[in-house]
């Protein structure tokens, strides 16, 4: 009997670990807007790596700061050299969790609201953020979108007073990723 239970439970365990689905992308998009009425400032990064676990809700993002594409070259230069110091802090990451992953049915096509909570690290500073987002399930593919706002001073990004009215103190960040199942 004991042996039987052991066998059954081990089969179950194997089954559970196999059922653990992970979704992955290397081509996620993160963009931001930090402009004011005086000046439009926006940039886009199209090579964001992200992975999430459909069972536990564990969620991670990583991007290269130097990969943001601006419309004006000076902005890109200031962004990398003065504000984000991308030679010192080349990467930015998010590590957290989808707190209501149990409400997403990955077997059924549809749109599901989610809440994501975790630590956003950029410019060498770690800070907790929480944001609503949307998961869209279509067959084996999942896409996610989220928009949230951060404060520049939270990440010790100092804006010189000369350009203070041109750069917003808050930055609106948008995330748009299309995942496929990690084999």
């Amino acid at each position: 009997m004991k042996k039987f239970i052991l066998i059954v439970s081990s089969i179950l365990l194997v089954h559970i670990s196999f059922a653990q689905k992970r979704y992955f992308t290397k081509t996620g998009i993160v963009s931001f807007e930090a402009g004011t009425a005086v000046e439009d400032i926006d940039a886009i990064n199209k090579s964001v790596t992200s992975i999430f676990d459909a069972t536990s809700g564990q969620y991670e993002f990583a991007l290269l700061v130097n990969g943001f594409e601006f419309k004006r070259s000076l902005m890109q230069q200031h962004f990398n050299e003065d504000y984000l110091e991308s030679d010192k802090y080349p990467k930015s990451t998010f590590k957290g969790k989808i707190t209501n992953i149990d409400q997403v049915n990955f077997k059924k096509d549809g749109t599901y609201p989610v809440t994501v909570k975790g630590i956003l690290e950029m410019h060498g500073v770690k800070k907790e953020i929480e944001t609503p987002g949307v998961f869209k399930v279509k067959g084996d593919d999942v896409s996610s979108t989220a928009t949230f706002t951060i404060l520049l001073e939270d990440y010790q990004i100092a804006i010189p007073s000369l350009v203070k009215d041109k750069i917003s103190k808050t930055v609106k960040i948008s995330v748009n990723c299309s995942y496929s199942i990690l084999k």
Binding site: K26, K46, S47, T49, A62, L63, L64, N66, G67, E69, P90, K91
Partner: peptide
């Protein structure tokens, strides 16, 4: 070249 995450990344 913009650096390396898991992969080495090039843009543009």
């Amino acid at each position: 070249c913009t650096g390396k995450l898991m992969d080495v990344v090039l843009n543009k």
